[in-house]
Computed example of a mutant assay.
Amino acid sequence: MTNKIFLALDFPTLDEARSFIDQNELQGVPVKVGMELFYREGPRLIELLKQNGHDIFLDLKLHDIPITVERAMKNLAGLGVDMVNVHALGGGDMIKRAKEGLMAGVAVGVIPKLLAVTILTSMDNHILNREMKIEGNLQDNILHLSELAAKNGADGVVCAAHEAKKIKDMCGKSFLTVTPGIRLAESPDDDQKRVATPAAAREGGADMLVVGRTITNAKEPKAAYEKVEKEWLYGVKL
């Protein structure tokens, strides 16, 4: 399921998300559902999106004690989403138990892909060292957490575009790299610190993109989505 562009449905309600999809003729595109929308609408939202043909990345970034994450993943697996994630900073045992929960929770069908978030794309080395008191540089920590995730059953990581190649070199070509923080050249960076254009993400070796405000805040969202798609597929700015 590589080469997919997940549209981030960062809307407060299902009605607003559905209205945006319908008005901009984006029915059936892969979507990312985050905390804001899922915590308000719950499993009903996932069921409706599946009925409308959307692949779904459920972006809840679980981070808790291993048994709690395992039980939560067992429940989430039954929703039939395509990908879910945890924070790699939760540790190897938590990642391993998350995967076990997903495997136990799928009665029939495909087990959701388990992704690990290494270091948020809104963070930089200053935040990592000064605020979180995590030693070392950003890249070394990202690679370490990616390897930890791979060793404990994760199928891939959420990472910045320029990190993808090094992660694949360490964890293998089949290890998924899913890249948020995607911006068209004319779009603002907003609160993201490690951003990239679709073409740069392609060049860097990312498998999938997560794109939000560069589409949802555009004057013509469908045209923005198509521009991201063309640049992603062909590696050129069109």
Rank of each mutant, 00 (worst) to 15 (best):
M73K: 07
L76D: 06
G204S: 15
V158W: 05
F38P: 06
A206C: 13
I95H: 00
N141H: 05
D191M: 12
A98E: 01
V31P: 00
G105K: 13
L128C: 09
G205I: 06
E229T: 14
E135R: 13
L209I: 09
T197D: 08
K237R: 14
L26R: 04
M1K: 14
A200R: 12
L114C: 10
L115Q: 02
I142K: 01
N85A: 11
K166P: 02
M94D: 00
G90N: 05
L48T: 13
P30C: 04
V29S: 10
D22A: 14
N129D: 08
M132R: 03
V33F: 02
A200G: 10
I111V: 14
K165W: 06
G34I: 02
K165R: 14
R71L: 13
A206R: 06
E36T: 06
V211R: 11
F175W: 03
R71P: 00
K133N: 15
L145N: 01
V84R: 03
A196W: 10
K227E: 06
S187P: 08
P43I: 11
L115C: 04
A164H: 11
R183M: 06
S174R: 11
H144L: 12
W232V: 03
G42P: 02
F20K: 03
I95W: 01
A218H: 10
T121F: 08
V31Y: 00
E147G: 04
L145P: 07
P112Q: 03
M103N: 13
T2L: 12
A224P: 04
T118D: 03
K230R: 13
P180F: 10
I5N: 09
L45F: 05
R202I: 02
H126L: 15
D190H: 14
D169C: 08
C171K: 00
V236A: 11
A164T: 12
A154P: 03
A218T: 08
M35L: 15
G235C: 07
D55H: 15
W232Y: 06
C159S: 10
K32T: 01
E36Y: 02
I46E: 09
G92L: 09
N217P: 06
A224Y: 05
L7M: 06
E226G: 05
Y39G: 09
M1Q: 13
